[in-house]
């Protein structure tokens, strides 16, 4: 009787761990073990299917000797930098404007944010059509009378990456806006009143007091947008399919085509590991600080 009771109470003590275990197992396998697995493949000479020999750093050397990869990395820098700056800037501006006690705020907020509900494939498809040099914006402006206007970035290898930036910013700046707006709403109004009483003008209050107070939101925006930028894949595929040529190749599209189209699984794995390391370098410190602050708070 007593033993049975203590067994059942011991079971009750373990129950939470038992229930959470399957999820944990799935995540350990599909996240951490799989990362390890990809890491292993990146050190083999795998091509079409994985082979488990040891090829040392061969795949990494080959990766960094591939001009296409260089294009991809360079593009990632251009794309991320512009995408981050524009999305953050526009998002912050819109959040501040929306926070001025305006009418129709709910409607406007919904308008700025709806692109986030769309698939990048839909976004890419729509912008591909809009930026179509024969029939899109260029034609509209030409017909309005400005006949020398050209907007053919999407077919221009030098400019095509900027079309990805445009579509990306259109899709994601509303997201930045939403986070900034949440941050602004969290700021104690009395701070602003105090500054007003001291005679500070509104722009000054924003520059000196409010925007600095948005630092946590800013950090979140930058980290999350960087993550979106690095994993951007569908947008490029739908908008330019990596082209013209390989002009809009990104690490994500490079990895995919190396692995599934060009039978260079080893190179694909190596590029995936490079991506992972980039993301981890940004995300892990961020998560660490978020978790620590949450525990303190």
């Amino acid at each position: 009787m007593n033993a049975a009771k203590s067994f059942s109470s011991r079971l009750a003590g373990w129950l939470p761990r038992i229930v959470v275990a399957p999820s944990l197992l799935i995540v350990i396998v599909t996240v951490y073990l799989f990362i390890l697995w990809t890491g292993v493949i990146s050190f083999t000479s795998s091509k079409f299917v994985p082979v488990y020999d040891f090829a040392g750093l061969e795949q990494f050397i080959r990766l960094w000797a591939t001009p296409r990869w260089h294009t991809a990395v360079a593009n990632l820098f251009i794309f991320s930098a512009l995408f981050l700056m524009l999305s953050t800037g526009i998002g912050l501006l819109m959040a501040i404007l929306l926070d001025q006690n305006i009418r129709a705020e709910g409607f406007l907020r919904a308008v700025y944010l709806y692109p986030m509900a769309l698939s990048f494939i839909v976004t890419g498809t729509a912008w591909k059509w809009i930026m179509n040099p024969g029939l899109g914006i260029q034609k509209v402006v030409n017909e309005l009378g400005w006949t020398s206007f050209t907007f053919d970035w999407i077919t221009d290898p030098k400019m095509a990456i900027y079309t990805v930036v445009i579509a990306g910013v259109w899709q994601s700046s509303g997201f930045a806006m939403a986070i900034f707006l949440a941050g602004l709403r969290g700021i104690d109004n009395s701070v602003i009143k105090a500054a007003q009483i001291e005679g500070a003008s509104l722009p000054l209050i924003y520059r000196q007091i409010i925007i600095p107070m948005l630092r946590p939101a800013m950090l979140s925006v930058i980290v999350l947008l960087s993550y979106i930028a690095i994993k951007s894949f569908d947008l490029v595929l739908a908008l330019t399919n990596g082209g013209p040529g390989s002009a809009t190749e990104l690490p994500s599209t490079f990895m995919f085509s190396a692995t599934f189209r060009r039978n260079q699984m080893g190179v694909g794995a190596a590029s995936a590991i490079m991506m992972l390391m980039t993301v981890a370098a940004i995300i892990i410190p961020y998560l660490y600080s978020e978790l620590r602050e949450r525990n303190n708070g």
């Binding site: 959470v20 599909t30 993550y227 990895m255 694909g268 992972l276």
Partner: peptide, 26 residues
């Protein structure tokens, strides 16, 4: 429990390219 949460949390920010090949095999 916090460690478990941390493990799960990183999964939100996983670049899925890093698991595509093993997942396809599995």
């Amino acid at each position: 429990a916090n460690f478990v949460f941390g493990l799960l949390l990183f999964g939100c920010f996983l670049p899925y390219q890093a698991i595509l090949i093993p997942m396809a095999r599995t």
